[in-house]
Amino acid sequence: DSLACAASDEGVAFDPRVILEDGVCKLADHSALAGSIATMDRLIRTCVQQANIPMEDACRMASETPAKIMGVFDRKGSLEDGKDADIMMFDNNLKLTYVMQMGNEVTNEL
């Protein structure tokens, strides 16, 4: 449930009524949180490193479980023949090293 500005390097929110401050998207008047700006790689890393959840379980929680809940497991959520091939790879320090979306390599800066 991350907002579009999560992947932005500019530190600017999508709407003047919200601000990015201290790694959080808030309403500009500071009255409430506007939404998450955590990226999926950050969430997986947090699960593994801070909550001690095994990597396999963290990845399943981030892929298979939501795909089943949303009713798209027939094409997303696992690595199987005929599925969309959305893949993230990490190094031993859980730094994102590779992304494939719909079978195409994503070459933006990681």
Rank of each mutant, 00 (worst) to 15 (best):
residue 103 G to H: 04
residue 72 V to S: 06
residue 71 G to I: 14
residue 104 N to S: 09
residue 89 M to P: 03
residue 15 D to Q: 05
residue 62 A to G: 11
residue 17 R to F: 01
residue 48 V to G: 09
residue 77 G to Y: 05
residue 23 G to I: 02
residue 4 A to I: 11
residue 65 T to K: 13
residue 103 G to P: 09
residue 92 N to Q: 10
residue 74 D to P: 01
residue 42 R to W: 06
residue 33 L to N: 08
residue 99 V to E: 05
residue 20 L to R: 04
residue 33 L to D: 08
residue 22 D to M: 04
residue 32 A to Y: 04
residue 57 D to F: 10
residue 50 Q to M: 12
residue 68 K to D: 03
residue 65 T to S: 12
residue 37 I to G: 02
residue 2 S to E: 06
residue 41 D to C: 12
residue 74 D to I: 00
residue 13 A to G: 14
residue 70 M to D: 13
residue 42 R to C: 05
residue 94 L to A: 05
residue 96 L to G: 06
residue 92 N to C: 05
residue 25 C to M: 02
residue 67 A to S: 15
residue 33 L to M: 11
residue 107 T to D: 10
residue 65 T to D: 13
residue 105 E to F: 00
residue 55 M to A: 15
residue 4 A to R: 11
residue 5 C to H: 05
residue 23 G to E: 01
residue 11 G to H: 02
residue 91 D to S: 10
residue 47 C to M: 15
residue 62 A to D: 07
residue 105 E to G: 01
residue 61 M to L: 15
residue 84 D to W: 06
residue 42 R to M: 12
residue 37 I to Y: 00
residue 101 Q to F: 09
residue 34 A to H: 07
residue 24 V to G: 03
residue 91 D to R: 09
residue 10 E to K: 11
residue 84 D to P: 04
residue 8 S to A: 12
residue 100 M to D: 10
residue 61 M to D: 10
residue 107 T to I: 15
residue 56 E to H: 14
residue 106 V to Q: 14
residue 3 L to D: 07
residue 110 L to V: 10
residue 46 T to F: 09
residue 78 S to F: 04
residue 15 D to I: 00
residue 91 D to T: 13
residue 84 D to L: 14
residue 53 I to A: 08
residue 19 I to P: 01
residue 68 K to G: 03
residue 20 L to A: 09
residue 39 T to R: 15
residue 45 R to N: 00
residue 102 M to K: 15
residue 51 A to G: 04
residue 79 L to Y: 03
residue 97 T to G: 03
residue 68 K to S: 10
residue 85 A to G: 12
residue 9 D to G: 14
residue 104 N to H: 12
residue 68 K to Y: 04
residue 107 T to V: 15
residue 108 N to K: 07
residue 38 A to I: 15
residue 19 I to W: 04
residue 25 C to A: 09
residue 84 D to N: 12
residue 71 G to S: 14
residue 78 S to N: 07
residue 60 R to I: 13
residue 6 A to G: 12
residue 77 G to W: 00
residue 69 I to H: 12
residue 72 V to C: 10
residue 98 Y to I: 03
residue 65 T to P: 07
residue 2 S to H: 08
residue 53 I to E: 05
residue 26 K to N: 03
residue 11 G to N: 00
residue 62 A to M: 14
residue 22 D to Q: 03
residue 67 A to F: 04
residue 7 A to V: 09
residue 8 S to H: 11
residue 57 D to Y: 07
residue 35 G to F: 01
residue 102 M to N: 15
residue 34 A to V: 04
residue 90 F to D: 07
residue 66 P to F: 05
residue 44 I to Y: 00
residue 39 T to Y: 00
residue 95 K to C: 14
residue 26 K to D: 02
residue 4 A to W: 01
residue 71 G to P: 13
residue 65 T to N: 15
residue 99 V to P: 05
residue 37 I to L: 08
residue 45 R to W: 06
residue 3 L to E: 05
residue 96 L to R: 06
residue 100 M to P: 03
residue 70 M to S: 15
residue 108 N to M: 08
residue 20 L to K: 00
residue 86 D to L: 02
residue 41 D to Y: 09
residue 33 L to P: 08
residue 25 C to S: 07
residue 38 A to S: 14
residue 81 D to Y: 04
residue 98 Y to P: 04
residue 59 C to K: 04
residue 28 A to D: 06
residue 26 K to V: 07
residue 11 G to W: 00
residue 58 A to F: 09
residue 83 K to H: 05
residue 106 V to F: 10
residue 86 D to Y: 09
residue 4 A to L: 12
residue 7 A to Q: 11
residue 77 G to E: 05
residue 15 D to M: 07
residue 14 F to K: 13
